[in-house]
Design a protein around this nucleic acid. Structure first.
Lengths: 361, 361
DNA sequence: ACGTTAGGATGAAACCTCTCATTCACAATC
DNA sequence: GATTGTGAATGAGAGGTTTCATCCTAACGT
């Protein structure tokens, strides 16, 4: 139904080849023909058929991005950055949502591939073990850049945040306020970045001379119920209640806050709190939540650059593993631990001594 | 580089046509051939070239959705619904962000069209006047369903919320709490839904016998500065300070809260507050924000259904204008006005009488 | 044994574009 | 005036798929 180049050619009184030359801005076409073709395009409201073009040129100038849940504010921010970069390079970005399912993720990759998208940005749904083999089955290797979550030791480009460093920084922040009993609540530890954030927490404690207590490491999931359970058992037990809590991602963090608030605890009075990722509108809700903010826009932007580089240089070029720094944005939810509480508890002495040792080192 | 049907045919020892028949699940192919082809597909890891298929069949089984800002939580929720519906019908959904620019929006529509997408869901960036002509210039009419924001009286399908009704409901809620001086802050009134929400506010006041005060209608934009200015001038003036405020969208509402909080006002103590759209995590922040929640998922889902229907029935079928109901979710931010305040003001009497008349009706 | 039928398989055409080798026209050169 | 050179235009072919008319063959009926 839409007009084709052939019709343009007929109307302009030139050959189809000439029309193509005009459209592709090629040389070797007289001003007179060009004008006639342009006029025809205007008259017929012609729009090139990108499908036919792609088939012929074998290029789509399109990239894809797959995220686990577009509803989580963290991802749209990344998408924005990716979109900008793609546009600047004359590419078009297709956004897809895997809904947290590895199977669906595979399907989507296959789909994008069938669509002859030139490469994809992937925030994997977590099937770390699954992904590699799925990618390998492919005959020709397909350009993929992993974002945010790094699949095991796969031979693949990636753009992530310095998770370990960021977690270490945030933990140190809590320690510098005087906290000794710092709990951590994580999402599923099958995710590489969750592991790394946990590692950062451990490193910070170790270098501060604070013993790591297994009972303060709460590995949960992204589900509210699960998180609540961990928070309750962790906060309600009679002894060794932590004075601070760090969450390794926004979803789990939000769930934890929700749970703790509903238990009647408030922050920073009853506990200090830090979380990865910004919860929307964090900067105006009271109390503001101290958070580890990641350079989301830059992550998306950079990832596209890496992907385009891969596309251009082919499969043989060495892999890039980009790490971007995060920063801790201190707000009201993190403060000094209450002295009274510390004094009424038997673990006070422990707290004191190790706090002392910390400040000396 | 990837294997083609021709190669499959060679490997399986059948013709290309037969391969195609196997793949498209057609009849008229013997079990023996089918098996051979299937085997070849497995061996070669064949994936159909969707581009070539689309070129031939003139179908892409793809829809597009354009939103003004994917970063605003409201839109991803809609996208989720649209995605589900699309998937259920065997369609694929492409998400695009117009970044609030009408020009870019037009470009994107043109792009989707060039990509031979079968139809698009459009949350317009606001160029109500611009859009129709752009769509009309098109030779063949292109299936478009407007979502959330209805372009003027354009001959086009739409799926929106009952904006007027919702605003009326929310305003009535405030009135039922005893508020008489109710302010409203809106986004740009060029947007149709903003207009309608304002209308709902007016209707509620009128039917409650409360005179409409122009000084209580604050038309702002989506910009923080602009909103702050309106809030300050509205709240700080010596007389006629409203006891309640309704915001007609989440972005403006959030900006208003931010501004009012920073002025030292708090809710529901100093003013009651209601806003359209849910601010992320509203259900756990204190105080919880009373909000008008829209059926976002359903909107997206329904819009796809309408779009597919349009695609199927062609351009001549009558237009559909779907209105979905919203609901008011009452939380802590809306409460009774302080009696002291009411009593020190001359407008108290007005408040009393009409409040009484309200409860009687 | 012959004609009919129907299921299976085939090959060419078409979808729309781009590419490239070829032709054409015309001017410049000797 | 014949040859060469140059820029402009052309037309065929290719890209991978689907479709469709055609062809083949084996089975069936009489």
């Amino acid at each position: 139904m839409p007009p084709t180049q052939k019709e343009l050619a007929k109307l302009a009184g030139v050959s189809a080849g000439t029309v193509s030359n005009v459209i592709s801005g090629s040389t070797n076409v007289s001003e007179r023909s060009r004008q006639k073709v342009l006029e025809a395009i205007r008259v017929l409201n012609y729009q090139p058929n990108l499908i036919a073009r792609s088939l012929r040129t074998n290029r789509t100038r399109t990239l894809g991005i797959i995220v686990p849940d577009i509803t989580i504010p963290f991802f749209p921010k990344i998408i924005r950055g990716a979109e900008s970069a793609a546009r600047e390079h004359g590419y078009f970005l297709i956004v897809l949502d895997s809904e947290g399912s590895s199977d669906r993720e595979s399907d989507l990759i296959a789909l994008l591939r069938a669509q002859r998208v030139e490469g994809v940005l992937l925030v994997t749904a977590g099937g770390l073990e699954v992904l590699p083999e799925r990618l390998k089955t492919a005959q020709t290797h397909f350009p993929v850049v992993c974002l945010d979550r790094l699949p095991a030791d796969l031979h693949i480009d990636s753009v992530c945040v310095d998770d370990t460093g960021a977690a270490e920084m945030a933990t140190s922040h809590l320690m510098s306020l005087g906290h000794r009993n710092i709990a951590i609540i994580t999402g599923p530890l099958t995710l590489r970045n969750e592991q790394e954030r946990l590692r950062g927490y451990r490193q910070a404690l170790q270098s501060g001379g604070i013993p790591i207590q297994k009972s303060l490491i709460w590995d949960a999931s992204f589900e509210q119920d699960d998180v609540s359970k961990r928070c309750q058992s962790g906060m309600l037990r009679p002894t060794g209640r932590p004075s601070a809590l760090m969450a390794t991602n926004g979803v789990t963090g939000l769930a934890a806050l929700r749970s703790l608030y509903s238990m009647g605890l408030s922050t920073p009075k009853d506990f200090s709190f830090v979380t990865f990722d910004e919860i929307t509108a964090e900067d105006f809700f009271r109390p503001g939540i101290t958070s580890i903010v990641q350079p989301t826009y830059d992550m998306g932007y950079k990832a596209v650059e890496v992907l385009l580089d891969r596309i251009e240089r082919g499969d043989d070029a060495p892999r890039k593993k980009v790490r971007l720094p995060a920063m801790v944005k201190v707000r009201e939810s993190s403060g000094k631990p209450l002295v009274e509480v510390a004094e009424t508890k038997p673990r006070r002495s422990v707290s004191k001594t190790s706090s002392a040792s910390r400040t000396r080192r």
